[in-house]
Design a protein around this nucleic acid. Structure first.
Length: 268
DNA sequence: CTGCCCCTGTAA
DNA sequence: TTACAGGGGCAG
């Protein structure tokens, strides 16, 4: 579920819950979550730590504490959110952190693909050093996108989802950005004209900023971790429906083992 | 690049 | 029952 906008919203919410706080203790009920670290090593590493700051790198969340950094990747179905007390965490919780103000930070993950690790900041930084440009950063310029595109050989949609080039775009927002830029997802990234690269860069930034806002609003609603509550995709998940802009039927194809949705009328 | 894997839930 | 799901790592 989470791409950059959802991850950024989760980070902001976690930051607010953790500011000025200390972790009393942690509990993990799914060993794989922190592998190869053992749950014992993990919980010992974070117990008693005081929160200092947080950051996001692509779809990764880094929570810095004195002496230790907590790295979290939500993958497909991970959820991280604070609840008022320990008794309020749901049965599907795979980890939780008791805070010194009585609240609990819950990590829920029905599919169990999410990952977490507690380690020194440098070690975490090393692991993330291969990530590409964050599309919300100032360095994500048309020139930067152009040089990345020139170096690629494949279709633009899988190109946009490659975290080593651009960090944070996933299946939904890659498709939505291409729709806004009017680009066929099957086109070779290297074949895009400078004008189209410029439009694509703009579309990416625009769709992500919009979606961060929606995600934050959706997550803040009590009880609802409902996704896409306010963000309405133009093409994603709309196979067979008509394009709201040109009326053509939205198509679904496969690229890199995943569904790509696009409008054959608007995207060329 | 593609295909397969990880794991569980949900819808057709 | 099968296909698919917004993640990524791996081998080929």
């Amino acid at each position: 579920m989470p791409e950059l906008p959802e991850v950024e919203a989760v980070r902001r919410i976690a930051e607010r819950a953790l500011r000025g706080r200390r972790i009393i203790r942690a509990h993990l009920s799914r060993r794989r979550l922190c592998a190869p670290q053992t749950p014992e090593e993990f919980t010992r590493a974070v117990a008693g730590r005081r929160f200092t700051s947080s950051e996001r790198r692509g779809k990764n969340i880094l929570l810095h504490f004195d002496e230790v950094t907590l790295w979290i990747h939500l993958r497909m179905t991970g959820r991280l959110y604070p609840v008022a007390g320990p008794q309020l965490r749901p049965a599907s919780t795979s980890a939780y952190f008791l805070l010194d103000d009585g609240r609990t930070l819950v990590f829920e993950d029905p599919r169990g693909l999410g990952v977490m690790r507690a380690a020194k900041r440098d070690e975490i930084e090393d692991r993330l050093s291969g990530l590409g440009i964050d599309p919300l950063s100032k360095t994500f310029t048309a020139d930067a996108l152009a040089s990345l595109a020139r170096a690629s050989r494949g279709a633009v949609k899988p190109f946009l989802m490659d975290q080593k080039r651009i960090a944070g775009l996933g299946n939904i927002y890659a498709a939505e950005a291409l729709f806004r830029a009017g680009i066929d997802p099957r086109r070779k990234a290297a074949s895009l004209s400078p004008a189209r690269i410029g439009r694509l860069r703009e579309a990416i930034a625009q769709v992500l900023v919009e979606a961060v806002g929606s995600a934050e609003r959706a997550y803040q609603k009590p009880g609802a971790f409902a996704e896409g509550e306010s963000f309405h995709p133009a093409v994603y998940g709309r196979e067979g429906e008509s394009c709201r802009r040109c009326g053509c039927t939205v198509r679904r194809i496969r690229q890199g083992g995943r569904s790509t949705y696009f409008c054959p009328g608007c995207q060329r």
